[in-house]
Amino acid sequence: MAATASEGPFSRALPWLVPLALIILWQVSSSLGWLPPNILPAPTAVLEAAWTKLQDGSLIDNLGVSFARAMSGLIIGGAIGFSLGLLNGLSKTGEMLLDPTLQMIRNIPHLALIPLVIIWFGIGESARLFLVALGVFFPIYLNTLHGVRNVDPQLIEMGRIYGMNNRTLFLKVILPGALPSIFVGLRFALGVMWLTLIVAETIAANSGIGHMAMAAREFMQTDIVVLSIVIYAILGKLADSATRALERKFLAWNPAYAKV
């Protein structure tokens, strides 16, 4: 009977119960005056701020700017990480030449480079792009390398016996075999991407959600600060859901990813 219970409306509502209860508690506390608005504004105040910002267009503008930054950084850093991961996974020479250096750099927290990056690029767009790209590079690189290296050698031998050339072997055996690991890297990278963007936009930017929050702080507009935090949470959740959807599509063969 457990199977029928897991499909019922009750269990579908289950994940929403705790967040809903927290919001109600928060609203009640604000309404009763336990929570002063300059510490934490009521959820209704945050909604109101969202409505105002939506109407004057600044929310959409800032959201667009932040989203574009995140995606450009992800694409640049991800593409480089993916390519180097494949290269070093497939070629022993490549790995010996590059991997020790990359492993060394990996141990530097990329946010520690902020002072240097500001000196190099100023506080312009390229500085933020550089930081995001650097941040997403490593999870994607490491997991692609790991994935390629861990493809079952028996399957590779099978492919060779059946006369697959290098290209077919790569497309039909190595890449699909490495894909679960690459997706793990992508999900890590998305987390790093938002974190880096928040820090970069908070420190130096004249647009974007992080900037919106910092500008609001100067005028003690806690409702807009909280709104910015909520938006980051929603963006992070959306990115994670998108990856899950991709996993379900591309890893449907794997019982661990099959739709539950």
């Binding site: 492919g159 059946y162 697959m164 699909p176």
Partner: peptide, 22 residues
């Protein structure tokens, strides 16, 4: 072989098609 060595990401039909070659 003793192990089937099938491609887990390919359907039964596509696995059999591997035997047909390039």
């Amino acid at each position: 072989f003793q192990e089937p060595r099938l491609l887990p990401w390919a359907s039964v039909k596509d696995n059999v098609a591997v035997g047909l070659g390039e």
